[in-house]
Design a protein around this nucleic acid. Structure first.
Lengths: 157, 157
DNA sequence: CGATCTCCGACCACTTTGGTCTTGCTTCCC
DNA sequence: GGGAAGCAAGACCAAAGTGGTCGGAGATCG
């Protein structure tokens, strides 16, 4: 269905939340517990915890255990792309099922449509790569226009 | 995982096959049985049959029962977009799970990332809408370049 | 008219996803 | 140093969606 999973959704929301919280001041190093984030968005705490762990393992977040611990962005919000997040959570994304990591189609010579679709796949990848967590924080309208017209992709209607 | 299902893959392949077969001459009105197409691509015949039924119901194919019957394109290959096919088979595609047909997010006010992602969603929709079955038939390299550079989307690397 | 071919709709099994529970480890505060 | 707060990591479960199969209904042609 060409949709990204709820987990990826949650991950993006959490990153955006962390980016917002850590920005205004460095009062508490921007560390927020998984529970806090989960409550802010009304999502299952334990599920979010697992997602945050994944992102921490992928190097996008740093975790701090113990009292007053939590998660914080490992990098600047502008340096984390939506594609990176989705890839970390949902795994490598391939638009067609016949495109494997080896680039070989399981239908060998029969599948003749994979090449054009691979181009589409690349386009989507590029599109998502050009959108950072920082972009998500901007006012809705400006955000997309910025991301789309800001040098990466332009759509001609 | 942002992937389209095998069914959609099969559907696109079948449409491409029908477009190719019906093009050179109108010997048999371009009608091909589901079994023929399935054998050509080595995919389960009955599964393909179901997919073709769906496409027929969506108005992209016309079916003809009985001996020497089969399916044929209802329109020109250039008038059928990849998006239309995917939408018919996999249902409406929404990149985020919180974007419903009503446009309302199930997390009410909490979900703050849906607006930027909706733009991404629209971009992908436009991208797929600009690719027709006819485009799939062209030589691989020219195809994507044509579809991408041919007025719809341009990628700046 | 009837045999055969093809479409058509319901049905079933498996994988993936979303979500929960349990256990253990690390850090901070008293 | 002991306990509480919080992360880490694993198994586990239920629901949904996907991939695939089966038997019947209807049309065509000899």
């Amino acid at each position: 269905m060409l949709r990204l999973t709820k987990k990826a959704d949650y991950g993006l929301m959490a990153l955006k939340y962390l980016a917002e919280q850590s920005e205004p001041d460095a009062r508490n190093a921007g560390a927020r517990s998984a529970k806090d984030i989960a409550e802010a968005y009304h999502i299952p705490p334990q599920l979010l915890a697992k997602i945050l762990q994944t992102l921490a393992r992928a190097g996008m977040l740093v975790s701090h255990a113990g009292t007053n611990g939590g998660y914080a962005l490992a990098r600047s919000a502008a340096d984390i792309s939506a594609f990176e997040v989705i890839r970390a959570i949902d795994g490598p994304l391939f638009i067609t099922s016949c495109i494997t990591i080896h680039g070989a189609c399981d239908l060998a010579g029969h599948c003749t449509i994979k090449e054009p679709l691979r181009k589409v796949n690349d386009s989507i990848t590029d599109l998502l790569s050009g959108i950072s967590i920082a972009d998500l924080m901007e006012p809705a309208d400006r955000t997309a226009d910025h991301a789309l017209a800001g040098g990466l992709v332009s759509i001609a209607r």
